[in-house]
Amino acid sequence: MYATRIWDLPTRLFHWALAICVVGLVVTANIGGNAMNWHFRFGYSVLTLLLFRISWGFVGGRWSRFVSFVYSPASLLRHLRGESPATFTAGHSPTGALSVFAMLLVLLAQVGSGLFADDDIAFAGPLSALVSGDTVSLATGYHKEVGKVILIVLVALHLLAIAYYKWVRKEDLVRPMFAGDKVLSTPVEPSKDTAATRLLALGLLLLCAYGVNRLIEFGASSGF
């Protein structure tokens, strides 16, 4: 058996920070009122994290890069038939990859629509003044109804998949996302997880945060 670094520290921190922020988004949306101030903060944080993860998908550790979990339909069928080589299960499996891409797209749609949404009471997205009323209405409807439901369903499916792998397939997906290493039966190339790569990740995160902040400031200044 081989203990192999699969998830680098930036990927692990991203995963748990995103989980906290998504829970925060759902809770504050249901509370409403002054909690919406925190809803906006969580939304901006999620957008920053998503931009970081997309960037990290090109320059991050071996198993965090998109190229490591973009599979063909044939590979997906092989996986479903139980014919997965070690490279299919070291990082994201073909089904896990679909879950990752779905989560990224749904969250991008949710926070993106939130930027243009307006509750017609006290809170409006920072970019709502830049588009037409019809666009605001569409964004608001998606954000408050359709997108919210899709996100909750996707999170529930994600948790069910973790439970299935834990209790049925006897594979713990949570522990490696804390520790970083997986114990594999076949050696594979580990992810680089050094001080230099972590500094690179920090720089990317700060750059993404700066971009989101500038976007918000642009929307606020354009609304007057």
Rank of each mutant, 00 (worst) to 15 (best):
M1W: 09
T11W: 10
R12H: 05
F14R: 04
W16K: 05
W16N: 07
A17P: 03
A17M: 10
A17E: 02
L18M: 12
V22N: 02
V23K: 02
V27K: 05
T28A: 07
I31L: 13
N34T: 11
W38M: 08
F42E: 02
S45K: 02
V46N: 01
L47F: 00
L49I: 04
F52A: 04
S55N: 05
V59R: 14
R62W: 04
W63T: 11
V67E: 14
V67Q: 14
S68V: 09
A74R: 14
H79Q: 09
R81K: 15
R81W: 07
E83I: 11
P85N: 08
A86R: 07
A90P: 13
G96W: 10
S99F: 06
S99T: 12
S99I: 07
S99D: 01
L107G: 03
L108P: 06
L108H: 06
A109H: 02
S113T: 13
A117E: 00
D120T: 00
A122P: 01
G125L: 03
P126G: 00
S128M: 00
S128R: 07
V131K: 06
D134E: 12
H143L: 05
K144R: 10
L151C: 05
V155N: 03
A156G: 06
H158Y: 04
A161N: 04
Y164V: 09
Y165R: 04
V168W: 07
R169P: 09
L173I: 02
V174Y: 00
R175C: 03
P176W: 08
M177I: 06
F178E: 03
F178V: 13
G180M: 09
D181M: 09
V183D: 07
S185W: 06
T186W: 10
T186A: 10
V188D: 09
E189S: 12
P190Y: 11
T194E: 08
R198Q: 14
L199M: 14
A201M: 11
L202D: 01
L204M: 14
L204H: 07
L206R: 06
A209T: 14
R214I: 14
F218V: 05
F218T: 11
F224V: 15
F224L: 15
F224P: 12
